[in-house]
Design a protein around this nucleic acid. Sequence first.
DNA 1: CCCGATTTTGGAACCGGTTTCATATAATCC
DNA 2: GGATTATATGAAACCGGTTCCAAAATCGGG
Lengths: 340, 340
Amino acid sequence: MAHTMREVARRAGVSLATVSRVLNNNEYISEETRRRVLDAVREFNYFKNVHAKRLATGRSDLFGLVISEIANPYFPEIIRGYQAMAWNRGFDVLLCNTEYDLERTKAVMRKLRESDVRGVAIVTSSVDKSMTSELTAAGIPVVLCNAEPAGKLVGNICIEYEHGINKAIQHVVELGHRRSAVIAGPADNRTAVTIRKALVSGLTARGLKPVCVLEGNYRVDAGASAVREVLSYPELPTVVFCGNDLIAMGAMSALEESGVRVPEDVSVIGIDDIFFAFLARPPLTTISVPREQLGVKAFEALDKMLNLKRHKGSNYILETDLVVRKSTASVRRLSLKVNS
Amino acid sequence: MAHTMREVARRAGVSLATVSRVLNNNEYISEETRRRVLDAVREFNYFKNVHAKRLATGRSDLFGLVISEIANPYFPEIIRGYQAMAWNRGFDVLLCNTEYDLERTKAVMRKLRESDVRGVAIVTSSVDKSMTSELTAAGIPVVLCNAEPAGKLVGNICIEYEHGINKAIQHVVELGHRRSAVIAGPADNRTAVTIRKALVSGLTARGLKPVCVLEGNYRVDAGASAVREVLSYPELPTVVFCGNDLIAMGAMSALEESGVRVPEDVSVIGIDDIFFAFLARPPLTTISVPREQLGVKAFEALDKMLNLKRHKGSNYILETDLVVRKSTASVRRLSLKVNS
DNA sequence: CCCGATTTTGGAACCGGTTTCATATAATCC
DNA sequence: GGATTATATGAAACCGGTTCCAAAATCGGG
């Protein structure tokens, strides 16, 4: 079927080793020989077998990337940044989704380990030390996102939410808001908890102590059902901070369905600035997270650990910022009371 | 570093071949031996090296999936369906994006070929025969989407747009629309052209011959700029059909920005039913394409070709349907004239 | 013209598994 | 009880490359 290097060698009238040298751009090859080999390669339309190569060299040209779910709009840009970096350097990326499932996550780690990947970036939050240790023990560097201070061979990309959150709070203060609510992400998600705390303490500090702090998953329906709960309260908040844009969009939908207008009656703020945030009606004011950069930095961190043999693990910090669109507006004099 | 099978064999006091047999669930292994081997495996926390395995078996547990761009919301569900099928059967998927770039596409094909993938599904439309032939020539089955009748080792998943389109046209006819416009996808895209033609002929047949047929890319901005052009016409259409949901969402944005209300003044219909379609304001009426099924069927087609040694290439047809939401409404008596 | 240094090439071991073939042991049958 | 068959294991070849080591060819200097 496919030709092997030996056949190419025979055809070119040289040895196996020589063909290998030519194909690896090794020096110490005469022009004449190189030409002959390359001719034979062309003639046979020869491709190297990556598996043989990987076996022989003892390493793959693969980097792993672990995400939760491909359909979640949070991840595409991360994948993009990571993949672009890898591709530019001649590497491939093995994309793995955990589907939010622990067993599946374990299977993924095993797969990654078996595949001899050079390094792994994990941008899901539900990965604990016991899972990464399997990789690091095999000498495979790992980089996490918003994780606790790292150990050997594990880097960390930390997203600094404070800045964006503070600007957002400043923003709503200037708009005259006094009553806020928070719809946070899942309580078992480290990042979600960090954000919730920053939000609550920041709001409280500025005199906008939230009238309620709800928790749920990171999906649209969570935003909708949280809003329905908020609507049952005697006094409506004038601004609701959401743990991510999906929640925010769900919240806006539910709000509108109940006849509450955004932003006239209540303002809504999301986090992430996913692609669809600007397409929402109204376009969503949100705290942007540099996700493509996250992918890029994750790769760089791995690269650094690989090259410098720095076992300390390298860390990066990424800044967030506020993107003001149309889902926030100055508070109306007369506050609305829906259910009375 | 990592342990090898030989070490496990030595530890368990058996031969290399025996360990291999145990690990491959081979019959003809005594319970006693199996236990000893598995103990050793556990003790060493041993993993098989996939590259060695692939080299030895001459095939990889990989299936390729070629998409245009990871950030395009059209693809996630396809990936999902495909990957789920693969995982269930113990296979991995190598995800490749062409980034709409020809060189890149070629590189991807080469990579897939080198990787000894079992089969490849290509759901981008800009792949011609010369590219797939490199794969099929190597005995790797390929499945395309909406392609021309296939050759050897190439299957085809055909999306039947007619049904959805006809229902959509029926829908707008019932709503009393008489003037339509269509904003199609790129002219060099086979699927986009098919859709455009079906749309135009269907509309014409029902007496709604489009006042204009615009073409552009498949992105949001194309919808927006097309709408701006439409708005410069003396008479506004009352309904605009878009080549995909992204275009439709861009169209709705631009419409709204110009003070034209959707659906009161003009109705908008998309195609695909991407995740965000129902979150658009107003929620988008669209023709749903069973994308997860597309992924599933693509894998099945490959599987069939692989198992049955059917060189004919297997084909599937997928149906589309209309999803009515809020971006379409009955036409108003008095037609609006914006620029006069 | 000979010798050591340098450039070029081939031979062979090796990477870590799978698999064929042969052998040894146990079970079955007449 | 010996032949026959099923079960269990090992030895070794093989997959298709990379790379170390040694040998051959080329070259410059004395």
